[in-house]
Amino acid sequence: MNPPIALTIATSDPSGGAGIQADLKTFSALGAYGTAVLVALTAQNTHGVTGVHVVPTAFITQQLETLVADVSVDAVKIGMLANAEVVNTVADFLERHRPPSVVLDPVMVATSGDRLLDASAVRDLRDRLLPLADLVTPNLPEAAALLETEPAREDEEIIRQADALRELGVARVLLKGGHRVESAESADYYVDGDVSRWLRAPRVDTTHTHGTGCTLSSAIAALRPRRPDWLSAIEDAKRYVTQSLRAADAVKVGSGHGPVHHFHAWWR
């Protein structure tokens, strides 16, 4: 056994459906060894977030530097970063240490509607962190916030916004279309310098969608070291998330937006 080592830099979710907990479950399910650096803690359940406690940035840096002094990281997934100080701390780290693969999930708002990133941090995330990522995975509201525009509704708008995000300096964009609830499909759009592709799957009828974005981005990070290119890792990650959603109703956690079933292939 020589599994790839994946690092999640993100926030804790006590309910286990999103954040660090979802990332580590996804890494394990897809055969990657998970490591984690916490940048914030939340008070959270399946109904929403009631509080956020940010880790001091000096200690975030100490966690990161201590880890990479000993452990060779193959892929990094970046999730909720809470505020501008944390965004810049992570950007500083990536400028000092360049992992082979960096997936940035620009988490701004929870499934419940709770805001998870200070408005003042959006500019730093856009200007400093996006150019350091190999892939950014915003949903439609997050892409609109980064571009200071309205969320895309039509395919043509999604394509234009994905291209606009690439013009900000990010190498690859996966613009997630799951918020178009009127559509029978969950259609995501991928673009890099050479390839553009729609990735479509039937929309799964479930309210157990907590942590879907965290799970997709961490699945891509886990799979990328063992796939020939980014697109194949993304396609396999999307299939994993779709299957996790289809099995989600079997996991009874809380009374709100429950989690996807990260271990659907193993638990019977």
Score class of each variant (00 low, 15 high):
residue 127 D to I: 13
residue 140 L to Q: 14
residue 137 T to D: 12
residue 53 H to P: 00
residue 65 E to R: 07
residue 105 D to K: 11
residue 56 P to V: 01
residue 116 L to I: 08
residue 133 A to V: 01
residue 112 S to I: 03
residue 100 P to V: 05
residue 136 V to Y: 02
residue 67 L to F: 09
residue 71 V to C: 14
residue 85 E to L: 02
residue 86 V to S: 13
residue 71 V to M: 06
residue 118 D to W: 15
residue 82 A to R: 01
residue 108 M to C: 14
residue 139 N to W: 01
residue 59 F to A: 02
residue 136 V to P: 06
residue 139 N to V: 13
residue 87 V to Y: 14
residue 132 L to I: 01
residue 68 V to S: 04
residue 51 G to F: 00
residue 87 V to H: 03
residue 128 R to H: 12
residue 89 T to W: 11
residue 120 S to R: 11
residue 139 N to Q: 06
residue 103 V to L: 12
residue 93 F to I: 00
residue 111 T to M: 12
residue 137 T to V: 14
residue 77 K to C: 03
residue 84 A to T: 10
residue 113 G to I: 00
residue 75 A to V: 02
residue 80 M to R: 12
residue 75 A to K: 07
residue 90 V to Y: 04
residue 70 D to N: 13
residue 107 V to I: 15
residue 70 D to S: 08
residue 95 E to Y: 01
residue 67 L to K: 06
residue 126 R to S: 15
residue 72 S to M: 01
residue 69 A to H: 07
residue 122 V to I: 14
residue 97 H to N: 05
residue 108 M to Q: 13
residue 89 T to L: 05
residue 64 L to E: 04
residue 98 R to P: 02
residue 75 A to E: 07
residue 51 G to Q: 00
residue 102 V to H: 06
residue 124 D to T: 00
residue 122 V to F: 10
residue 88 N to R: 14
residue 136 V to Q: 11
residue 123 R to C: 07
residue 124 D to E: 10
residue 113 G to W: 04
residue 106 P to H: 05
residue 55 V to Q: 02
residue 78 I to K: 08
residue 124 D to M: 00
residue 91 A to D: 11
residue 73 V to I: 12
residue 53 H to M: 07
residue 81 L to D: 03
residue 110 A to W: 08
residue 103 V to C: 10
residue 70 D to W: 00
residue 71 V to N: 09
residue 118 D to V: 02
residue 113 G to C: 14
residue 111 T to A: 11
residue 110 A to K: 06
residue 92 D to M: 02
residue 58 A to F: 14
residue 93 F to E: 00
residue 81 L to R: 13
residue 98 R to L: 08
residue 79 G to E: 12
residue 83 N to I: 00
residue 98 R to T: 13
residue 88 N to F: 09
residue 92 D to W: 10
residue 134 D to W: 10
residue 52 V to Q: 01
residue 122 V to M: 02
residue 78 I to D: 07
residue 99 P to F: 09
residue 63 Q to G: 05
residue 72 S to G: 08
residue 118 D to N: 07
residue 137 T to L: 12
residue 61 T to L: 05
residue 55 V to P: 03
residue 51 G to L: 00
residue 72 S to A: 12
residue 71 V to A: 04
residue 84 A to F: 11
residue 103 V to I: 15
residue 114 D to C: 03
residue 139 N to C: 04
residue 90 V to C: 03
residue 80 M to H: 05
residue 105 D to S: 03
residue 56 P to M: 03
residue 75 A to F: 05
residue 86 V to T: 10
residue 63 Q to Y: 00
residue 82 A to N: 02
residue 138 P to I: 05
residue 140 L to T: 06
residue 62 Q to D: 05
residue 130 L to N: 11
residue 54 V to F: 00
residue 121 A to N: 08
residue 113 G to Q: 13
residue 103 V to H: 12
residue 97 H to Y: 15
residue 73 V to L: 06
residue 98 R to S: 11
residue 139 N to A: 07
residue 94 L to I: 04
residue 56 P to S: 04
residue 95 E to S: 14
residue 110 A to M: 02
residue 106 P to T: 13
residue 101 S to H: 15
residue 133 A to C: 04
